[in-house]
Design a protein around this nucleic acid. Sequence first.
DNA 1: CCACAATTCAAACGAACGTTTGAATTAATA
DNA 2: TATTAATTCAAACGTTCGTTTGAATTGTGG
Lengths: 224, 224
Amino acid sequence: MESQAPSTTKDRLLDAAEELFSSRGIDATSLRAITSAAEVNLASVNYHFGSKDGLVKTVFLRRLEPLNNERLELLDALEISAAGAPIELEAILDAWVMPALRMGHSPEGKRIKRLMSGIYSEPGDTLQALLRDLFSEILRRFCAAIGRAIPELSGEELMWRVHFMLGAMIHTVADQPSIRALSGGLCDPSDIEGVRRRLIGFVAAGLQAPLEEKDAPPTAGENR
Amino acid sequence: MESQAPSTTKDRLLDAAEELFSSRGIDATSLRAITSAAEVNLASVNYHFGSKDGLVKTVFLRRLEPLNNERLELLDALEISAAGAPIELEAILDAWVMPALRMGHSPEGKRIKRLMSGIYSEPGDTLQALLRDLFSEILRRFCAAIGRAIPELSGEELMWRVHFMLGAMIHTVADQPSIRALSGGLCDPSDIEGVRRRLIGFVAAGLQAPLEEKDAPPTAGENR
DNA sequence: CCACAATTCAAACGAACGTTTGAATTAATA
DNA sequence: TATTAATTCAAACGTTCGTTTGAATTGTGG
């Protein structure tokens, strides 16, 4: 009854939609373009997914649910083997970033990357809520783990730094074509191991940055 | 002949478009919604800007050109007063981030913030090229300055870290509502001085992270 | 005051959109 | 094989979009 064959109408639609959404954007992709690419009838979308919104939701869920499950499994394994003690920071970051990097480089998931960044910018009413729900729980888990790894951070400080961390990570996973172009081919985003090492090094250093004094006038740039 | 009065049709259109683009997205905002909010005639858009694309471009240019000019002026001032010596890293980052933070908090520019992140995700053909051009030069200037401040970084390593830095900064400037919500009101994005101190502290630490060995197997997360 | 350009206006254009419909076709059940 | 459900199909629906048009209005220099 549900999908198990390699090329049902549902799957063809999801694949085509994912491909087109990531290259042209969601709003700019018409159902007719999707059904043409998938070589199925136009009405199939509303038959199988109810509406375009339903198709969009399913496109995201198909990738993000396994992604977050893998992240949680890795974090669970770390917490079990740590047996109550704080986990090493780099290991936590690894559990967050590696599933995304691996997915981003698999032949099937290569398209979802650009979509992930669009999440935060596209003010799609339903999509925004869906993803907020999807990420709020897993984010709490990882925040807690990071907080235990860097106990000297206050709750506010921790949240801010996690926010910066997410920015760096999302931007990296989503915008891999731009880093290659801007660096003039110097940087190779397909080198997963290199990206991982550099990204985690950067983020770990940022998260563990020394706490500055609040009233110390920083450095410069005030001349305006 | 050009705009100097406080409420010409052109300015009313730009203000209304900026507001609606940032809250609903560019594609989801119709010219009719814009002209209604601006209380001008529908045809005014095509008369004054040629097309919707022309309006979009002007909306971005009106904010980004002064923003980047201010950044360049600050960097120029730093380089002049440094007289050939490397500039302190935090001062360079300040020159990049403060104009954006200040603009994002002024009453007139509060709307542009969310748009800035959409830049990287929305695959609008013309817009993408416009912004790539706008940022490629200033980015080269700041990369060079940062490279002089941290001379031990190779060109590749520098580009990667600047990439991470941009992710954290863009995400912070653009997505200020989400940090307040996710932290349960704990983090206050309207505290410019606090945001500046934390963001620059994070990014500076990330940029100056120690260089790891290439072949050292990192930490964990491989169990899958 | 008059001619003339600049701007505004109501109305309509054709195209593209998401969705619906009802018949045709295929697959499953007994 | 007969019956019924699931799926596909071509065609059309009503709406909204960006853009165009040509007349009306406003502002300006001679």
